[in-house]
Simulated scan of single mutants.
Amino acid sequence: MPTNRTIYTNASILTPRGVVDGCSFSVTGNLIEDVQPSAAVSPNREDATVVDLAGRFVLPGFVDAHTHLLMLGQSLQKVQLRSAKTVEEIQSTLRTARAENPDAPRILGTSWLYSALDGQEPTRQLLDAAVPDIPVYLDANDLHSVWVNSAALAELGVTSDTADPLGGSITRDPDSGEATGMLLETAAQQIVWPALARQATDADRDSWLDSAISHYLASGVTSAVDMAVGEDDLQAFLRA
């Protein structure tokens, strides 16, 4: 009778000696056992389940040694803008997101590229033209700045009198001094991110963690090291 042992045959396996073709390996529980030529394995073994990999490549799982799990999971649920090549495409994507989520209190997007602006400055007015009625927060692709609309500036309480934090800046109109809609470096980290974190619930954080883990497993990542575990992160890990 078959046991919990599974033998995988006809695989190309990455080993410490390099890639070895036409091999088999057996797994009992969570333990990978011997590697041997597939020709040595009987396809009708009664003590194990035999799976033919038909030449597929097998390698160890990846380890992400520096990650932020909840941030990753949240970013996966945001409006994705990396593929937008123009301002018009960014605006169109935001309009679609607004139409598809009419009850959303705000729109969160990520990964927009400066090259899509073709030399234009990222201003609140460009975002207001797409979504004027609720706050819009868009993380840049490098995660070092956030582009927001007028409603978001109002939600954040950012005015011409708001001081720049040490190590960051709120871009301003040179004539009026009003915020233009870009918050750079620590202005994003100390003004935008904490404000949005206060809006999140435990259910949100649990959903982000689930998204991050599902994404990792689908990509072959089997271990991860979170580099900035706060109390909210820890409680999400414990609930999971």
Rank of each mutant, 00 (worst) to 15 (best):
D118S: 14
T96R: 15
Q77M: 12
R17H: 09
Q80S: 14
W208Y: 15
Q199P: 00
L184Y: 09
L209E: 02
W208I: 02
R56K: 14
G73C: 07
L14Y: 05
R95H: 04
N30T: 15
A140D: 09
M1V: 11
G55Q: 06
S219I: 00
N10Y: 05
N141R: 08
D34G: 12
T159V: 03
A203C: 01
W208F: 15
T110I: 08
P105H: 06
D175C: 00
D64L: 06
E185C: 04
V131A: 08
E185M: 09
L138F: 07
S169Q: 10
G177V: 01
Q235I: 02
S176N: 05
L70R: 04
E89W: 06
F25K: 07
A154R: 13
L143E: 12
A130T: 08
S207R: 14
G230E: 06
L69I: 10
T123S: 14
R45L: 11
P37S: 10
A151K: 15
L153D: 06
H144L: 07
L113M: 15
V131Y: 09
T67H: 01
T162P: 04
Q77D: 14
M71Q: 15
I191Q: 03
V136E: 06
P102M: 06
V35W: 02
T28L: 12
T171S: 12
T67P: 00
D118W: 02
A195F: 09
S150Q: 14
S26A: 15
G109P: 08
D142H: 15
P60E: 07
L59I: 05
S111H: 15
S145R: 10
P2L: 09
S219R: 12
P60G: 08
D103Q: 13
S145K: 07
P105A: 11
S26V: 06
Q235R: 14
P122V: 05
D52I: 08
R45I: 03
D139V: 01
P132Q: 10
G230H: 02
F25A: 07
S115F: 03
L196K: 02
L166M: 03
T180L: 12
V131Q: 09
T28D: 14
S75E: 12
A200F: 03
D142N: 15
S42D: 15
A197Q: 10
L70F: 02
A140L: 08
P122L: 03
A163Y: 00
A104Y: 03
G29R: 08
G220W: 05
S219Q: 15
S160E: 09
A228T: 02
T15E: 02
I13E: 03
R17F: 03
A130D: 10
D206W: 01
L156A: 07
I90N: 06
D142I: 11
A104K: 06
L59E: 10
A203V: 10
R239D: 08
